[in-house]
């Protein structure tokens, strides 16, 4: 990216999008984040303790945004320490591991927890994106169709099958996140944005939402 566009991003306050990764411990939340942000994968990554976040700039449909990706500790007892950070999220990535059916079943709980603590006003229209990670691992327990059905029945959320290890579908998933947020912003109100953005938007056709 050019220096010009970076300045442009800095000037536009509305383009920082907070995205939060939730899901059971060990499904690969940190690996997904690291793969996306640094394009690295570490088999021996630690369990996350507390919360961490990384930023990543990207351009979707002609719009520059900065994703602020929050990674959390998935284990039950750390709940009271992660939930305060849900607030202000623009999108929630619900994550499970396709080789762990329990982690899939727990998506409901994670969604509930998020909606509750993030103080989401309209859970039906809030952008969730669902990730079924570890498709590189053998011994799959959750079928793709099963996961798709869940996404369909729970608000028509987009579903991505990913492998942080093989870098499968990671970029696609996070770009979809950005698209969803932008789309839901556009729906709710005309984006409050800087002059520059307006010009930019006029020059492009509106991103069609999926």
């Amino acid at each position: 990216c050019t220096g010009m566009s970076r300045v442009y991003v800095m000037a536009d306050k509305s383009t920082l999008l907070k995205v939060i990764l939730l899901g059971d411990g060990g499904v690969g939340k940190s690996s997904l984040m690291n793969r996306y942000v640094s394009n690295k994968f570490d088999t021996h990554l630690f369990h996350t303790i507390g919360v961490e976040f990384l930023n990543k700039e990207l351009e979707v449909d002609g719009r520059r945004v900065t994703l602020q990706i929050w990674d959390t500790a998935g284990q039950e007892r750390f709940r009271s320490l992660r939930t305060p950070f849900y607030r202000g999220s623009d999108c929630c990535l619900l994550t499970f591991s396709v080789d762990d059916s329990q982690s899939f079943l727990n998506l409901n709980l994670w969604r509930k927890e998020f909606v509750y603590y993030a103080d989401v006003k309209e859970p039906e229209s809030f952008p969730f994106v669902i990730l079924g990670n570890k498709i590189d691992v053998s011994g799959r327990q959750v079928a793709k169709e099963e996961a798709q059905r869940w996404c369909c029945e729970n608000g028509g959320h987009p579903y991505f099958e990913t492998s942080a290890k093989d870098a499968t579908n990671i970029v696609e998933a996070f770009e979809e996140v950005a698209r969803r947020v932008i789309a839901s912003d556009d729906k709710q109100e005309p984006l409050l944005s800087t002059h520059t953005v307006e010009l930019r938007r006029k020059s492009r056709s509106d991103p069609s939402c999926c």
Binding site: K13, L16, K18, F53, T66, Q68, P84, R87, G88
Partner: peptide, 10 residues
């Protein structure tokens, strides 16, 4: 670093 601080986060 985050270019901007999240407003009203906590």
């Amino acid at each position: 670093r985050p270019a901007e601080e999240m407003v009203d986060l906590l």
